[in-house]
Nucleic acid binder design. Structure first.
Lengths: 124, 124
DNA sequence: CTGGATCCTAGGCGATACTG
DNA sequence: CAGTATCGCCTAGGATCCAG
């Protein structure tokens, strides 16, 4: 399963780095918010609803740095800033969708397992 | 893209819950460590190498509660405890593999984007 | 060998106030 | 409108020691 001469750590490095990026609280929501085209800062904020101004800024910056998001400033007054997914960001949607499908397919099983586990703990 | 009458928050809930589970620092490594069959506590610890005893215990507990991992105790002296992926845990490997492939395929592009971004920051 | 209990620190994140 | 700056909380996670 793991290539010869490779440790678990190095062979999983790409996945782990990716999860370090999009495994946070907001990145996935931003990808989804942008999947229908460019949106302005406050539009995204309203769409997500519970994200703080600070975290929206920080997360967008990070995704811009990773090349997932493109930021376009129109220096009007007041200023207008649009965000959109790059080709790279768009390509993330597929594997993310897979993961989402798995989550939906097995949500019930997971909840059941948790109830089982918690019951056994309570009785122990 | 998003079903009518659904918010971004609710439509992404399954993915976000899943990421809350496996988006942490160690879960993916544990899945990989167990993909060739049952392993003992300290074997996993050695395989991963940099995980603390505490986090291995905690992460395994969490995955056991979620039904991803099965824990089997053999009450010898000293005790022997084996961990293995359940069917549910095995089924996670496919979408995880997809994600890993995406990460590998686009690793270079991401690094390039970061360098670009950092350069533009430095010159600004 | 397996893991619990405790202490400690870095960092994620929210709330709020301020700026161009 | 789109941020930046500052504060403070809370939790993830490491180190260490103890126990069955």
């Amino acid at each position: 399963m793991i290539p010869e001469g490779q440790s678990l750590l190095t062979s999983c490095l790409p996945v782990r780095q990716l999860l370090a990026r999009i495994g946070d609280k907001w990145s996935v929501l931003i990808v989804m918010a942008l999947c229908d085209g460019p949106r302005r800062f406050n539009e995204i904020k309203r769409d997500i609803g519970t994200i703080s101004q600070r975290m929206l800024t920080l997360t967008l910056r990070g995704m811009e740095r990773d090349g997932l998001v493109l930021r376009t400033v129109t220096p009007t007054n007041p200023p207008r800033v649009d965000y959109e997914l790059t080709a790279l960001g768009q390509s993330l949607r597929a594997p993310l969708q897979e993961l989402g499908q798995w989550a939906i397919d097995h949500e019930a099983a997971i909840n059941l397992a948790q109830q089982d586990y918690d019951l056994r703990q309570g009785s122990a």
